[in-house]
Each structure stands twice: as structure tokens, then as C-alpha cells.
Design a binder for these strands. Structure first.
Length: 567
RNA sequence: CGGGCUGUAGCGCAGCUUGGUAGCGCACCUGCUUUGGGAGCAGGGGGUCGCCGGUUCGAAUCCGGCCAGCCCGACCA
């Protein structure tokens, strides 16, 4: 490609609405343009990068025996109703009607469709099957952000495994795990596998691949010493022992006028610090109230509550509902003596006594509460959010919390969809066995953004060679000087002949402009061809990443570049 | 969905308080000079001022409604 003819609309200034580094650089570098919230046009450079990412993914999926499909993005409501997700997905699913007034949806994921196809599997001899596609997904995200990091329309490689038994699923899962590690390594991403919640998809052994980045939306809890790594939605830590002193014989009610928060009660004369309080939250799970108890200073992780209860419909109770349930307003809520509402308690409250909590009587609290003696806990769960510096559950070392981008997610679906769709095969004994599935996803644009987040400098993007839009930029200086452009063009031909993807910057522009563009766009190697060097038959080769420049004989330039790119 | 903010040329912005028919920088086009790190001079093109309505002789500017986008939170494979 000649730069003079290429559509690479680079910008000198950052777009005003871009926050994330990848967002800024991809817009400035002429890779993407926003059409609306959560929808981006992908320009020629972006398409080149994306097709290379896709190539890496295809190679690694094919390597473990994956077979590529392409399924419709447009789905009939029936398959989603069959799996029960027509309702579950709620507002996140784009829905539409066709001319016959039939309900349709734009696919957010493809378990239902692959599941439908898998009905044609007949025998255990056919298994395992690894099916994948690279397809557009539509999700009406409440809040798209970060440029291409979180959009409403994006490309995903999703794959699904089908096995006859759990051992088979374990093996399929493991193969995907390894394929994913290879994919991220080839993309230049340092992706940490972490334990995760499988959320609305249902499943177990959920593992997310996380790339550390301040632009990330997830938080990862990591232990340097033993390697424990988990999403905040799931992470646990060791709770330090707290001295509750001498146990009170009974519960004592006391007046706490104006006290509404944990902080108020900690400051209140006769109150108690947060770690000696019981925080009482009211949630509505599947339409029914539940009390959720945590230590006063511990935040709730809603995902843990959802995972722990299996609830699908799920929200904090409204003030009226709280008053109806407990007879008091938030600020004086408690679980002591509550029998009519199931109580879910965080494990950090186990064994605690001399605790303070609300009395279910406005402006009154209780002290001397022994959790296990005074509260009828229906279910103990891990519900609290851990924080940086707490001790690792397994090894006791200090835990680190960092922000990360979820670049991939693999999990075991089990028989959820197979049951819903009746997917089964005959086993060796000739008996029908329900097929057991796994699901594995990688978001292409998000991965590209993650690469930019982790591979850039003050001048622009620094692509790994494997996914750079071009490997080499030939920057011709003084296109007006006879011989300059011709030398560049010859080198350009030779590069392509040698299989090097090259762009020839033949624009009649100032050197600074051309250097800056090549750097912003992030081409790994730049060859500077100009009269100054040509006098002695020399061009300059610069490594984008290191900035190292070396003079190379024009004749040996292609071989030199090939060698650099092989490395 | 709650809170905050913004919509004026491709990008970044000023003008709005105090109404008089739109401007700056970059980018773009032409010419000349220039050219190893974002050139100079001269000339030029480009805008339904987000949309609809109202007030007014007159609205980018004032008023009302709507839409869109961004940020924080909620939410979210």
C-alpha cells in the first residue's frame, strides 16, 4: 500500500471524549471511528490487525481440533425461549420483530444455536466435538465505554465443546485452556488465568484470562507468593481474628438517636467500630425478601450473593419493602429474632459475639449480640469483598488487587443447554446420554485494545509484529529529489516479494510528519530512504519498540528486515 | 436507572452572560519557497451552530421539550 492512497486518518489531537489509552490511540491512529455509543466503524488498518488476530485464534483453535462454523446473528425467539434465556437476558438482548410480527433477537452468544445443531450428534463415537466461529455479537450494554473495550456490537470467537462425560469435559476444557494460553502469548498479552464467576451463563470451573491494565473494568486479586488469582467477584481471603472480649450474657437494646450508618455507629458513644458491627441488607431474590448479613466494615459482592443463592432475579429492596419486612428503616436494621425472612450470613461473622446491630426499631440498636446464638442464619456464604493487602487464604501472604481487562473466558456449561434442548448421544451400551458442554470466548476488538493498552509509548502504538497492520513502513524523504522515490519503490517491491507486509510512505510531506505517523500507527520497523543515505547506498532501519536505528546497505535491507521480523 | 457535563467545519475549541446572522488553531485545496523530526508566505474551500417548538423586527445566544454523546455510580459472559 502507498500511504498517499491509504485511508489512514490520523489526528494530531486526542479526541475529547476518549479516556482509555487504547481508545485515544486507535482513534488518533486512524483505526476506528465511533458511529454511536458502543458501535465503532473499523477502518482499513483495524481490519488488518483484526484479521491477524483472527488468524492466530483460528490456528490455535484448529490445532486443538476445532471446526469453524458461521452461525446467524439473527435468531428466532423460540430457541431462546427454549433455554429460558429469552427472559433471563432482559434488556441486554437486542430484540426486534420481522414483517410477520415474529419475535427475533440479535445473538449475544450462541449456545442455543450450536446446541440446536448438536442435536444431529448421534453417537459417543462422534465426541468430543469442538465447534467455533468468529461472529458479531450484539449486547445492549447499559454503559459502553473505553472505545472498543466495551461495545454493544463486537466480534467474538466463541467455541463450544461437546463431551459424553465429565472426564471428557475436563479434557476439552484443559485443551482450550492451553489453546488460550498460546493465543494470548502470540498476541503479546500477559494474560493471567483467574477463578471467576460464570454469571448468567451458568456453569462451573469458570476461568477468565485477565490482562493487567488501569483501563480494565474488572478487579483481580492476586497472590505473588502462591499464585492464587481470582476475580473480585469470587476472591476470598483469610479473615484476621478479632478479639470479641468477654461474652455478654444477653442482648441489650440501647437508644441511638440519629445513627444511620456504620460510620455513625462507630462514632457513637456506646457504639462499636465497624468490625464489631453486623451490617444488615435487605435484598429481593426471585421476588422474595432475604436478609444479607456482613461485618460492618465489609462491602457486599452482589455476584457472590447471586452465585451463592442461584438467584436470577435479584435487587436491593426498596425502602417501602424494607419497612414492610422489618418494621424499621435502613439505619436500624437487624436480624436478631427474625424468623419470617431467610437470613444469609457472610462467613466472616461465624463465631462472633458482643456484636452491635440494628434493633428493627428506628433509633435503637442492640449490643452483646452473639451471631450464632441470637440469629437464625439460614445459610452461610462467602459474600464479602476483599481488599488490597489482606492475607491470602491459602498461603497467608499479602494479596494484591489490580484492575484488569477480561480478554477471554472459559467455563464448563455442564448439561444446562443439553437438558433444555435434549442433546444426547448413545453410549457404548446403546443408552442415551446427555451431552456435557463447555463454552469458551475471546473478544477480538477487546483483545486488540488490550494489546494497545500494554504496548504503547508517548508516541503511539507499538504493535507486536504478529498483529501489526504492516510489518514495515518505508519512509521516503525528499520525494522530489530524483532517485529517492524510485529507490523506495524498488525496496517496496522487494519487501513484498520477500513476503514482508509493507507500506510505502510516498507522501510529499515533511519528514517529521511522516515519522510521527509511522510511530503513532505503530509499524514495527521503519526504513528511512532519503538522498542523504542513498549517496552512500545506505538506508536506515529503525525498530519501533526499542528506537534503535541502524544504517543498512540498500541491497541487504530486505534480508536484514526479514531477519528482524523472524525474531 | 441516579448524579455530573457536553453538543458550533474532519479534529480541538472560542463566541452564548449583555440577541444583530459565525470565528480561531490544526487538517484540506492552489501557487511559490522549503524539506533527515509535526515548515513559511499568499490566496481559497468547507458549518441546517444536535433536533423541534416558542419569545422577538431579528436567536448559536433567551425559554420549553426532545435527541445524542462523555464521565462517575448502579448494572453487565
Amino acid at each position: 500500500m502507498r500511504w498517499s492512497q491509504a485511508f489512514i486518518p490520523t489526528l494530531r489531537d486526542d479526541p475529547a471524549d476518549a479516556e482509555a489509552i487504547s481508545h485515544r490511540l486507535l482513534v488518533r491512529g486512524g483505526y476506528i471511528r465511533q458511529l454511536m455509543a458502543g458501535a465503532y466503524s473499523q477502518l482499513p488498518l483495524m481490519i488488518r490487525v483484526r484479521s491477524k488476530v483472527a488468524k492466530v485464534i483460528r490456528e490455535e483453535m484448529d490445532r486443538i481440533g476445532g471446526q469453524e462454523f458461521l452461525l446467524p446473528a439473527l435468531h428466532p425467539a423460540e430457541v431462546w425461549q427454549k433455554s429460558g434465556r429469552w427472559e433471563i437476558m432482559g434488556d441486554e438482548m437486542f430484540r426486534l420483530r420481522d414483517r410477520k410480527d415474529a419475535d427475533l433477537a440479535l445473538g449475544m452468544t450462541h449456545e442455543e444455536i450450536f446446541g440446536t445443531l448438536s442435536l444431529e450428534l448421534r453417537s459417543y463415537r462422534d465426541l468430543p466435538q469442538f465447534w467455533y466461529q468468529i461472529q458479531t455479537k450484539f449486547r445492549d450494554e447499559p454503559r459502553p465505554k473505553g472505545g472498543v473495550l466495551r461495545t454493544r456490537e463486537f466480534t467474538m470467537k466463541d467455541s463450544y465443546s461437546f463431551d459424553i462425560d465429565p472426564a471428557g469435559l475436563d479434557a476439552s476444557f484443559q485443551r482450550h485452556y492451553e489453546a488460550y494460553e498460546r493465543i494470548f502469548a502470540r498476541l503479546g498479552l500477559d494474560a493471567v488465568p483467574v477463578e471467576a464467576s460464570s454469571g448468567a451463563m451458568g456453569g462451573s470451573d469458570s476461568i477468565e484470562f485477565m490482562v493487567r491494565s488501569d483501563s480494565g473494568e474488572d478487579e483481580v486479586v492476586f497472590c505473588r507468593s502462591c499464585g492464587y488469582a481470582a476475580n473480585m467477584e469470587r476472591a476470598t481471603s483469610r479473615v484476621e481474628d478479632i478479639d470479641d472480649g468477654v461474652e455478654h450474657a444477653g442482648v441489650e437494646k440501647f437508644a441511638t438517636p440519629g445513627v444511620r450508618t456504620i460510620g455513625d455507629l462507630a462514632d457513637f458513644d456506646g457504639g462499636a467500630p465497624g468490625d464489631h458491627q453486623i451490617k444488615t441488607l435487605v435484598y429481593i431474590l426471585e421476588g422474595e425478601p432475604r436478609l444479607v448479613l456482613l461485618r460492618g466494615d465489609h462491602p457486599l459482592v452482589e455476584q457472590k450473593l447471586q452465585d451463592g443463592t442461584g438467584a436470577i432475579e435479584f435487587r436491593p429492596a426498596h425502602p417501602e419493602e424494607i419497612r414492610a419486612a422489618l418494621g424499621a428503616d435502613p439505619g436500624s436494621l437487624g436480624a436478631v429474632g427474625v424468623k419470617h425472612i431467610p437470613i444469609l450470613a457472610d462467613l466472616a461473622l461465624a463465631g462472633r459475639y458482643n456484636m452491635v446491630t440494628g434493633a428493627n426499631d428506628d433509633d435503637f440498636h442492640l449490643r452483646g449480640v452473639n451471631v450464632e446464638r441470637d440469629i437464625e442464619v439460614s445459610k452461610w456464604l462467602d459474600l464479602r469483598e476483599i481488599s488490597d493487602g489482606e492475607s491470602c487464604f491459602t498461603c497467608g501472604s499479602s494479596l494484591e488487587v489490580f484492575k484488569a481487562i477480561e480478554v477471554g473466558h472459559i467455563f464448563k456449561l455442564g448439561t444446562k443447554y443439553a437438558d433444555a434442548f435434549g442433546i444426547n448421544v448413545l453410549d457404548e451400551a446403546g443408552e442415551a446420554q446427555t451431552v456435557i458442554m463447555g463454552s469458551y470466548g475471546i473478544g477480538l476488538e477487546r483483545n486488540i485494545a488490550a494489546v494497545v493498552e500494554t504496548h504503547h509509548d508517548e508516541k503511539g502504538i507499538v504493535w507486536p509484529v504478529a498483529i501489526a497492520p504492516y510489518s514495515v513502513a518505508i519512509t521516503v524523504l525528499r520525494t522530489d529529489v530524483p532517485g529517492s522515490l524510485e529507490a523506495g519503490e524498488r525496496l517496496y517491491e522487494q519487501c513484498w516479494n520477500a513476503g514482508l507486509e509493507t507500506i510505502l510512505d510516498d507522501r510529499d510531506d515533511r519528514p517529521g510528519v511522516k515519522f510521527a505517523d509511522a510511530e503513532l500507527v505503530g509499524i514495527p520497523f521503519r526504513v528511512t530512504v532519503g538522498p542523504r543515505g542513498l549517496e552512500s547506498g545506505v538506508v536506515e532501519v529503525q525498530d519501533r519498540a526499542s528506537g534503535v536505528t541502524e544504517a543498512v546497505a540498500l541491497e541487504g535491507a530486505v534480508a536484514h528486515l526479514s531477519a528482524l521480523i523472524q525474531r
